[in-house]
Amino acid sequence: MLGSFAVLRKQSLLGDAISHAALPGIAIAFLITGTKETNVLLIGALISGLLGAFWIRGITKRTHLKSDTALGLILSIFFGFGMLLLTYIQKQPDANQSGLDKFLFGQAGTLLARDVWFMAIVTAICLVVLLLFWKEFKILLFDADYAKTLGFNTGLIDILITSFIVIAIVLGLQTVGVVLMSAMLLAPAAAARQWTNSLGVMVILAAFFGAIAGVVGTGISASQNNLSTGPVIVLVAAVFVGFSFIFSPSRGLLFKQIRFIQNRKDLELHKTLAFMFEIVKGHENISHPHAVKILNNFQGYTRKSLGKLEQKEYINVEGAMWSMTAKGYHFAANLYNQQANENE
C-alpha cells in the first residue's frame, strides 16, 4: 500500500536500500541487548533504516550525486557494515547468536502468533495515519511546490511518509527477506498503477494485489516441499504485474498494439476516401459512378477497404463501379478541412 507512494515518488528502490540498511541495526541491537527478542531487533532495524533513508535524502539534496548513486551507496555500505557486525557476533563466545541471519532471507513459516498481532497493529496504525493525512500526502506527491505555498509543512509530511515506508519494510523483512522486500513494495503498486489514474483506487488496488499475492504465494509454497515462501510470493506478484502490463485496458501493451493497428487501418481508409474525393470533386453529380479500376494504381486500396467503406455507407459499389454517397462526400470534405486546419 505504501508502495504506491514509493512508486509515484520515483523512489521505488528506496525499499531495497532500506531493507539492506536495516541489517546493521539488527546486529547492533543484538550486540547491545544480547537478546533475540523480535521487537528489540525490529527497533534496531527501524533506527538504522531511518538513518539510511535520511542519509540518502541528505546526499541527493546537498551534493550533486544522483539518487541512484546515493541509494546504491547506502545500500551496499550499510549492508557491508551489517555483515561485518554479524560475522563479528558469530565469533563471540556466547552461544545465543545464531538465527540473526534469518532476517536476511526471511521465513514466513517461523512467524509466531504474537508477531502477526504486532504486524496487524502496526498496519492498522499506518492505515489510520494514511487516512488522516490523505489530502496532504496527495498534494505533496503530485505538486510539492503547491503544497508548500498552501502552507503545509512539506518537510514534516515527507519525513512522515518516509518513516512509514521504513516501518512497513522493516516489518515485512521477517516475512520475505531483504532481497525480495523491494519487489513486495513495488510489484503490487506497479500492477495497480496500470489499472487506474486515481490515487485512492490505486492504493486500494495495490493493497488488494499484495494481499492476494501473499495468500496465493503462501498457499503454493505450503503445498509443495522445499519452496520457501518469499520467492513464491514475489513470483506470484510478478505474474500480476506482467498480466497488468499486457491486459490493462488503457495502458496495457495488448490494447496499445490493437489501438495502433486500428489507427493504421483507419488511416488507410481515410486515404482511400480522400483519393476518391479528389476524383468525385470534379463532377457535378457526386454520386456519378466510376470504375473500380481507376483506384488500382492507388496505394492502400484493397477490396477489403472498399467493402469497409461501403459498410459505413460512404460509397456504393455496384459490380465494377463505385459511387460516392452524400454522407461519404460530406465526411471526406470534412476530413480534408480537418487536415488543412491541422496544417495551419
Binding site: A190, N226, L227, P231, V234
Partner: peptide, 28 residues
Amino acid sequence: KTKLVKEDTAIGLVFPVLFSIGVILIAK
C-alpha cells in the same frame, strides 16, 4: 521502453523476480 513504469521501478521489479527464480531452482 513501454513507458508503463519508470526506470527505477523497472529495476526493482526485474531483479527480485530473477533472484526468486534462482532461489526456487536451488530449493527444488
